[in-house]
């Protein structure tokens, strides 16, 4: 099994994507999807992250739900900020120190920071120890750093231990 599908997660995602793309569950779609799920990981073994083996399915689901909820709530806040008077904005560049070392986890953390409104992750330092974050309107940088670290980084470190 592990020789046939070296990356079971990637293969599964590819099969699901193919079935969504053709929008049918017929036998032909399944066969084509399984063929793609077998062939594509085989062709790009070297490009794929070596140790992307997510654990803790339950933590992943909880993180996903939390990100969705935060994105919805804070999008409304950003809409209010955008429509309100612009002189009340307090934009800021904030450096957030990060402890997570796994590359896929770091990528996900930066994407989550960008999607949770109010903040966009701007740049990662050379040694992967700090992220520069631009906030649209932030009164309290320490609180922002704390909430990023506890709400998103902690679960990601559990999912992708180094």
């Amino acid at each position: 099994m592990s020789r046939l599908f070296p990356h079971p997660l990637l293969s599964g995602v590819l099969v699901i994507l193919w079935l969504l793309l053709v929008n049918s569950l017929s036998l032909g779609s399944w066969i084509m999807g399984l063929f793609l799920g077998w062939g594509i990981p085989r062709l790009c073994t070297r490009m794929w992250f070596e140790n992307a083996r997510p654990r803790h399915g339950w933590t992943t689901v909880r993180l996903l739900l939390r990100v969705t909820k935060d994105a919805l709530i804070a999008n409304i806040q950003v809409a209010a900020l955008v429509l309100g008077p612009t002189r009340r904005l307090k934009p800021a560049f904030i450096e957030v120190p990060v402890d997570i070392r796994d590359e896929l986890g770091l990528t996900l953390l930066m994407s989550i920071i960008s999607l949770t409104p109010g903040t966009v992750s701007a740049e990662l330092s050379e040694d992967h120890s700090r992220i520069l974050v631009h906030a649209l309107s932030e009164e309290n940088p320490e609180q922002l750093i704390h909430s990023i670290k506890t709400r998103y980084e902690q679960p990601l470190m559990e999912i992708f231990p180094c």
């Binding site: 994105a71 919805l72 999008n75 950003v78 809409a79 955008v82 429509l83 612009t86 904005l89 934009p91 960008s114 999607l115 409104p117 109010g118 966009v120 701007a122 631009h134 649209l136």
Partner: peptide
């Protein structure tokens, strides 16, 4: 709202917030 943010916010870094998030949602 995303496009309004793009038009009326003061500098590039604040304008970035509108389209990337509100418009995506």
């Amino acid at each position: 709202v995303g496009s309004i943010g793009l038009l009326r916010l003061p500098d590039f870094f604040t304008r970035l917030h509108g389209p990337t998030k509100a418009t995506t949602l």
